[in-house]
Structures are given as C-alpha cells and as structure tokens.
Design a protein around this nucleic acid. Structure first.
Lengths: 143, 143
DNA sequence: CTAGTAATCTATTAAATCAATAGACTTTCA
DNA sequence: TGAAAGTCTATTGATTTAATAGATTACTAG
C-alpha cells in the first residue's frame, strides 16, 4: 500500500497539472481542495521541489507550480520519491536493491521469479501513467 | 514492500513444501534453516494453521506440515493473510476496499485507472505463483 | 522601504505498526 | 509420568508514519 504521504503527493500533483502554466498555486488552496493537512503538504511539496518536479515562488502571489511537463511526470517517479521501492522484495528491486539473508543463492531462489515479474509489470504500467494521462482521462469523464 | 513477517511466511512454506508428505517438521528446524526468530515464526505458523494452510501435531514427534497441496497455495493467499491488500490503493482493492476521502467521484478519478491495472497484473502473476511452482523451479536449478 | 504574504526550515510529538521476546499452559508419545 | 513440542496471552522496544509548532527568509505591492 502507498503511504498517505504518497497519495497526498499524487493528488497535489494532479491538482497542479490541471492548472499547468496558470501561475503559482497557494499551498492553502491545494490543502483545502484535496483535504490534506497543510503543514504535512508543505513538507511534501518541498520534497518534490528539491527533486525538480515543482518550482515555487515566495511572497505575495507566490505558491507552487509544475516545473516538469505533465507528460514527463509519471507514477514511478513519485512513488520512488515518496515511498521508495516499487518491488515487493528488496532482492528484486532495481533502485533499492538489498540482498536477502534468507536465500543463500539468488540465482536458484524460486521466490524471486514471481516477484521479478510483478516488478516488471508494475513498472511498465506505472511509468506509462503520467500526470498528463491522468488529467486527460478526468477531463474526458467530465470531472 | 512485503513485511518481514510475510517473507518469513513464504520461506517457511517453501521449506515445508520441499518436505511435503514427509511428516511434521519442528518449528526449530525451520527457524534455524531459514534464519527466522523462533518465537516470531511460531506466531506466523499458527496464523497459517488457523487459515487451514498448515496442520500441526503437538507433543513428541510433532511439528508443522502442509495441509493444502503445494499447487493450491499461491502468493496472493499468503500476502493477503500476512500483510493485507495486494493493491497499492485502498480504493482499488478487491479484498480490502475502502473509499478514498480525497477523490469525490471514483468513476472519474484518473488516478484509480493506473492502479487498477497494476492490481490486475500483480494478481495474475502472484496467483500463478504457487509453492509447487517455486519448489519445482528450485529443483530444476539444482538447489 | 516597509508591511504583509507565502514559502522554508528545524524541531518535536503522537500514533500506529512492525518485529521480537517471555512465560505459562496444553497435548502427545514413549 | 515426564519430556517434547505446539498454543496462547501479554508485553516490549524499535521504527515508521502522520501531523503540528514556531521561527525565518524571500518576494511584491504600495
């Protein structure tokens, strides 16, 4: 399961993607619209700013806005940033690999097999799923 | 990521599957072979016994053994039992569904889409992955 | 140039979950 | 009947998650 932090991040990003190139949006606005505790959201947005996904502007008329293009931000990037690995096991993780103590021999470990498959499929789907994609779909459905 | 509990459970089950129909196996044996804290393993095995995956025999010569056939125990069942939902979001979960507070309208929520896809693919792969399958693969690779 | 606005940064805390441990009890078998 | 092994209840410590508080910095308008 994704953490609340990650869910908040996704919702905030979608909100900003809907307002792409329309100037900075106050944290307060996002927090209220998406029902996210403001202070918690601050930390989340800051993290995404440091990751160069968002930019921000201080002072009056300031706020956050998307720096990357909506079609260049996918779920893989967000999940890895907020929650870490996509894989279900450390020993099959591409970005957060750790050997497992239990199985001596990774090559012959029958367990890894299934979880490598899950990882690959998940990555495939989640990397196709961009902010642009999500916003487009919502518009089509008339949100 | 799967919890340690879940990983321990899978390793213990594979160990028992390798010894299917060869009589009860001591907790102690499993714990030592798989490097799992014995007391923790007790709780895990007990839970799987209550779920009718394992049976046990008390007293001298007792221990745990697979009740279900190795080909009838798949990763989906184990993960759900140990860690809960397979899905990444509660609002797309089949067995642990919860509405999400963030999105008013589930039908038009563009986010659910991607995560429904991930859920379906994960379920497909994990349900194909049985203990029999894992043991077979390990034998082929000459473990 | 200064008042107000909004993001930034540091720090702390509360709650929940995860992982592990302890010990008394029960069943079974030789 | 006593030793072996699982069963049950409970507690604990560590870690992570979620949320909050307050001081500081940067920006803009007037």
């Amino acid at each position: 399961m994704l953490s609340k932090k990650c869910k908040y991040a996704i919702h905030a990003l979608v909100y900003l993607a809907e307002r792409y190139q329309q100037g900075p949006v106050h944290i307060q606005d996002i927090a209220e619209a998406q029902h996210i505790p403001k202070k918690f959201l601050e930390a989340i947005l800051l993290e995404m700013r440091n990751a160069k996904i968002l930019h921000s502007k201080k002072g009056k008329g300031g706020g956050y806005y998307l720096y990357k293009k909506p079609e260049d931000v996918n779920m893989v990037e967000i999940i890895r940033l907020m929650d870490g690995a996509i894989s279900l096991l450390p020993c099959v993780s591409l970005n957060y690999y750790e050997p497992c103590e239990e199985c001596r021999n990774e090559v012959t470990c029958g367990i890894r097999d299934a979880f490598t498959g899950v990882r690959d499929e998940s990555l495939k789907i989640l990397s196709r799923s961009t902010l642009a994609h999500i916003v487009k779909r919502q518009r089509e459905l008339g949100k």
